[in-house]
Design a protein around this nucleic acid. Structure first.
Lengths: 116, 116
DNA sequence: GCCATATATTGCCAATTGGTTATATAACCA
DNA sequence: TGGTTATATAACCAATTGGCAATATATGGC
């Protein structure tokens, strides 16, 4: 992992087990054992996944007796949205400009066109 | 990589060099050497990054003489947006319901409250 | 056909990842 | 205090990753 926050977040999301855990958490807080239940993986494997999610800022841990319930922290998804939407916007701006240009030259007789 | 498409896409985005390449491509197609230029990495490293991006469906390759220009394929970002927005929506729906409940019990005198 | 340019493939390496079992810690319960 | 439950940490392993240098392939120009 390249240690920058956005890379950590994308990497945390690049695993189906972790994404399933996040989806479970989107419906409300859950204990480690609740998060483990849908999978056939060991406790330590769950702990490791949760560590990755916490390092990415996607979940936070609290304490309730001997349990350490996790809660989703959806604000950590904002940089993901911002980055992808910026990509899309740059791409679309370029294509809008291209479309405008194509319409312009279409409406201009060849002998009136100027190099721009 | 867990071999499902969404994981491949997230993993492709989890590297700052690859994200920078995508940002370059969002301003228009580019050759391998153009994509390489901002970095101090070898040609093969660039090829590998581009392979990852192509496997994720984020770029497509064409041919122009001896060059193989890459073009952004921004539709591959849609599943990323869909997944994250669904997460957010589930979370917010739950919190809207909680807020409604809190307002309800606030407006109801204690002795009129019923277990729901 | 020959050379230069653009890019890909191969073989290698160190670091990271996702999993395991065994062990430790922490809190509740009797 | 001792036992049980919930979770974390340690130590290890195989697979994957991101990088490199060396080599191969493909195309255009002479």
């Amino acid at each position: 992992m390249t240690s920058d926050q956005l890379s950590r977040t994308f990497a945390a999301l690049a695993d189906p087990t972790r994404r399933a855990m996040l989806q479970r958490l989107s419906r409300g807080p859950a204990t480690v054992n609740q998060l483990r239940e849908p999978f056939r993986i060991s406790g330590p494997a769950v702990s490791k996944h949760l560590r990755v999610l916490e390092d990415a800022g996607l979940v936070v841990t609290s304490r309730d007796g001997q349990m350490r319930p996790r809660t989703l922290a959806p604000d950590a998804l904002d940089p993901v949205r911002d980055w992808t939407e910026k990509m899309r916007h740059t791409w679309e701006a370029r294509h809008d400009a291209l479309a405008t240009y194509l319409i312009e030259i279409q409406d201009t007789p060849v002998n009136e066109r100027t190099a721009s």
